[in-house]
Design a protein around this nucleic acid. Structure first.
Length: 691
RNA sequence: AGCGGGGUGGGGAAGCUAGGUUAUCCCGCGGGGCUCAUAACCCCGAGACCGAUGGUUCAAAUCCAUCCCCCGCUACCA
């Protein structure tokens, strides 16, 4: 066995919670980049497994199951199947997509726990918790509301009062109520829980984290913050029925906390795979050979503490030889049209809807292009359409189509010999070589956005070469040379199809098909065969090439924004919220944005077709402003001329009755007592600021 | 309020960790070319006091300090 083959990789994506169908944000923050990376490693010829599955334990699953009137096991199975099918639709090429509730996950979690127990990293502590007599369950903090002991707010949550923002303990609440049944049949019960002794493990965790100099800023920053604040013991059990049992006498009523069992399921799911393929021991080859295995984990930044601190600590505490993460690639957040994805407000796109609208590769490409690697990024329908129309269709699709069509029209579809002495051809080969080099460099640094841009540049490079060589002219003057041009481009296209495979696997298949190659080959060829300008010689391209992408029309974009919620809707809801609230405090900096000055009304005239609006010209010192004001029923134009009044000068201009109004008169009063000008006590020059 | 991320030509981003020739890319805009290709492609051009102020330095978008603004998280919704 060569040294190369003992090097193994485990790629994991954060386990999506079983509860319902996920947003695009969930895809882009872990599942998709993990898939792209695992595919990349396969393109490098590495021994790699890509592990993921649903995270099924915990209270939310139980509650959602209640709501759907299903036993929790059935509920989880249902959503496991649904999510699995969706991810297959996105061509996520898992080695195994399992479940955290499978027997293997129970087994490994219990095994890990027992080792920690033997090694003295687990202790018991008694605690008080609220218990709902109706639901017959202990209530997690979030499932209790009651009156705040500090401010008397009646709907304070178990952990914090929204009104006075005091941090609370659920047992402090006055008249606590259960949010599951809504009743107040609650009592305080003593309960004991098991804790993982993180303070004891801290030095080892710190030493390990400090060694990870190659982690991205998001990951390392969050991990160091936790360590610097000091680790506290963390409960690993809950009072639930749904979950993994604690394998100790006297603790049979307890279940492990989700945060504790979920990451163990990466191992558990690998075991599920191992059992399924009939090699029950093979999981150890990956998870218990830390010197030769690299664990690469993809997750959203909220998950970083669990993967960078808690889980490694947990594994270290076993004193066993489990693999710890080599890379934890944390992602920031994806927003939707400038705001957040929101289930309740029905804003944003769910993964199942996405697949009904467009092929998976459209999403894969755009999402990786805007992957929130170093900052939050925004999903925009216009951006999506642009990426599809310009990059995928205009650049890649066009290149593939034009070369295949041209070969069919002029050379019976046969690819010829590439003349490698031709300097322009040499330049094209060099460009592909260089592209490959950069691609590997960026992928090895887990830089997905940058890799996508390298791909896009290569697609353009193909078009440039095609344009520069103008085979449609060559074919008339020197048919042989035209054939060289087309053959070179065909080989180039083959190369970029392989490079593009991790990102747009289905498209790469189609490209291979159009080139007359076996589509499944594109998932097998390794990167060292990308730069190859010989292998297609004599081959025949497809006589009926498949169109790679469909254009997304402007009209369609507008419809999508309308259907899924766009900016307009966001504005409205924001205004609504504000309108319902009392005026809150503003900071001085916000106040200082207001530019209010004394202005003198120079002219005033009625606006045709309006009974209240007057068009005023106001001298604000530096200039004359046109302001439309609704005071026509209070004053005649003549009365207004010469009046001095405070004017809000930097108000966003707005068209009223077709006239641009560039400011606002400030007056006092209301409709009962009338409206009055605020006239300065002493005459001041026009344009004097009001502070 | 606390925490995290960010402010770079009209829009979106790269560059900032290891300061240094004309600040890079995509879209848009202006002009030109091509007609093989899903009006898709290619070339040229205009456009940036790199959030503000102060500092370090021969030299700062890049380092330090202060401030301002935006977004997200703080709800087992990633």
């Amino acid at each position: 066995m060569s040294e190369e083959s003992t090097e193994k990789y485990i790629v994991t994506s954060a386990l999506p919670y079983v509860n319902g169908i996920k947003h695009l944000g969930n895809l882009v923050g872990s599942l998709l980049p993990a898939d792209v990376y695992a595919r990349y490693l396969k393109r490098k010829g590495k021994d790699v497994i890509y592990i993921c599955g649903t995270d099924e334990h915990g209270t939310p699953a139980e509650i959602s199951a209640l709501k759907e009137n299903l036993p929790v096991e059935e509920y989880c199975k249902k959503y496991y199947e649904i999510q699995k099918r969706i991810y297959e639709g996105f061509h996520l090429d898992f080695t195994y997509f399992g479940r955290s509730s499978a027997p293997e996950s129970h087994k490994i979690t219990q095994e890990i726990f027992l080792k920690q127990w033997e090694n003295g990293f687990i202790f018991e502590k008694e605690d008080e918790q609220l218990y709902c007599l109706i639901d017959e369950r202990f209530l997690p903090d979030r499932y209790v509301v009651g009156t705040c002991p500090h401010c008397g707010y009646e709907r304070a949550r178990g952990d914090q009062c929204e009104n006075c923002s005091a941090l609370l303990n659920p047992t402090e609440l006055i008249n606590p109520r259960c949010t599951i049944c809504g009743k107040d049949q609650i009592e305080v019960r003593k309960t004991r829980h098991l804790y993982l002794d993180l303070p004891k493990l801290e030095p080892e965790v710190r030493e390990w984290v400090e060694k990870q100099t190659h982690w991205p800023a998001v990951t390392k920053g969050i991990a160091m913050k936790w360590l610097n604040e000091g680790l506290k013991p963390r409960a690993i059990t809950r009072n639930l029925k749904w979950g993994i049992k604690v394998p100790l006498k006297g603790y049979e009523d307890l279940r492990f906390y989700v945060w504790y069992d979920a990451p163990n399921s990466y191992i558990g799911i690998t075991m599920q795979w191992a059992n399924k393929i009939g090699k029950p021991e093979i999981w150890k080859k990956y998870w218990k050979d830390p010197d030769n295995t690299k664990l690469i984990q993809f997750l959203g930044s909220d998950n970083v503490p669990f993967h960078a601190i808690m889980w490694p600590a947990s594994l270290i505490a076993t004193r066993d030889n489990y693999v710890l993460a080599h890379m934890i690639k944390g992602f920031n957040w994806l927003t939707y049209e400038g705001g957040k994805f929101s289930t309740s407000m029905n804003r944003g796109v769910f993964t199942d809807q996405a697949l009904e609208l467009f092929p998976a590769d459209y999403w894969r490409y755009y999402l990786m292009l805007i992957a929130p690697e170093r900052q939050n990024t925004d999903f925009k329908w216009e951006g999506f359409a642009e990426a599809v129309n310009k990059d995928l269709l205009g650049s890649l699709g066009n290149l593939v189509n034009r070369v295949v069509s041209f070969l069919n029209k002029n050379f019976d579809g046969v690819i010829g010999k590439v003349d490698k002495n031709d300097p322009e051809v040499q330049a094209l080969i060099r460009a592909l070589k260089k592209g490959l080099e950069n691609y590997v460099k960026e992928m090895d640094s887990y830089e997905f956005q940058k890799t996508v841009i390298i791909l896009r540049d290569l697609w353009q490079e193909g078009n440039r070469f095609f344009q520069q060589r103008a085979p449609w002219k060559q074919v008339k003057e020197n048919k042989e040379k035209a054939h060289v041009t087309l053959s070179a481009v065909a080989h180039f296209v083959r190369g970029i199809a392989i490079l593009s495979e991790p990102f747009i696997p289905k498209t790469s298949e189609t490209i291979f098909k159009n080139l007359g190659l076996d589509p499944s080959e594109v998932h097998l060829i390794t990167l060292d065969h990308v730069v190859d300008f010989d292998s297609l010689e004599g081959k025949k391209v497809s006589s009926d090439p498949e169109i790679l992408f469909q254009k997304i029309e402007k009209k369609q974009v507008q419809e999508l924004i309308k259907r899924f919620g766009g900016r307009e809707e966001k504005k409205k809801t924001k205004q609504k919220k504000k309108g319902n609230q009392k005026k809150g405090t503003i900071s001085y900096s916000e106040f200082s944005k207001l530019d209010i000055r004394i202005g003198e009304i120079k002219t005033a005239e009625k606006i045709e077709g309006s009974d209240k609006l007057l068009k005023l010209t106001i001298d604000i010192g530096s200039e004359l402003r046109t302001i439309v004001s609704g005071i026509g029923h209070l004053y005649t134009p003549e009365e207004l001329i010469g009046k001095k009044t405070p004017v809000l000068v930097n108000l966003e201009p707005k068209k009223l009755k077709g006239i641009m109004s560039e400011g606002m008169l400030l007056m006092t009063g209301n409709d009962d007592i009338g409206w009055y000008f605020l006239i300065p006590e002493k005459d001041v020059p026009n344009g004097t600021k009001i502070m």
